[in-house]
Design a binder for these strands. Sequence first.
DNA 1: GCGCACACATCGATAAACTATGCTTCTTCC
DNA 2: GGAAGAAGCATAGTTTATCGATGTGTGCGC
Lengths: 111, 111
Amino acid sequence: MPAPTTALLPGTLDLLVLSVLMAGPLHGYAIARAIEGAGGGAIAVEEGSLYPALSRLRRQGQLAGEWGISASGRRARVYWITGPGRRHWAQQHKLWLRFAAGVDGVVSAFA
Amino acid sequence: MPAPTTALLPGTLDLLVLSVLMAGPLHGYAIARAIEGAGGGAIAVEEGSLYPALSRLRRQGQLAGEWGISASGRRARVYWITGPGRRHWAQQHKLWLRFAAGVDGVVSAFA
DNA sequence: GCGCACACATCGATAAACTATGCTTCTTCC
DNA sequence: GGAAGAAGCATAGTTTATCGATGTGTGCGC
């Protein structure tokens, strides 16, 4: 996997986190690795961004989480998506598709 | 054109502005309208975001501009893209495509 | 025993967008 | 002639989110 050059566009991390949790519960560190893996090397998730985002989403009720054990046997805080979180994911997904199509429209209209 | 619901993702405005200026010089207000038009109603460009962005890009040497006259006969500051600006556009465009593909990859891998 | 991957967390700096506001000019419509 | 509104610029203050750095501790392999 090539080194990511893009980092993140602010405002997209929520969608990414919620997306991986749609498939099932996972702990923070694994969420980051899952995003980076599925992002094809174009996305880097810094820990200084991830953990505040997880707290934020939990405070908003879109995620729930509690202490558990990771696959490698270490203590880890496991998160899963809630009902409101699924609804938020659907909305964020729609907005992303709209916005991305808009940007592509602008770029291809003039370039 | 439906009311935009997305506004902007931080970090994308530079690419959008540079894109419309690739086609030729334009003044600020017209740049905003051009983006919104080509964005298919998914993108809104607020003046409080646009003018600081134009100053920024001008300060960075990616844009040049001077006072002139708009199509409707009013005084307006007309901007055009510079050599470094074109190079920056190419780079930003590449990064955007990479990033957007990465997000789509994450979303479709788990949802 | 040493180093590294795993796993959490927070602080401070930075950057960018949004809201609100204010100014001028030109056109349109009554 | 006057009012309203679109065209056009600009900035100050607030907010929000990412990032880099830093710190703690555990388990595994060599």
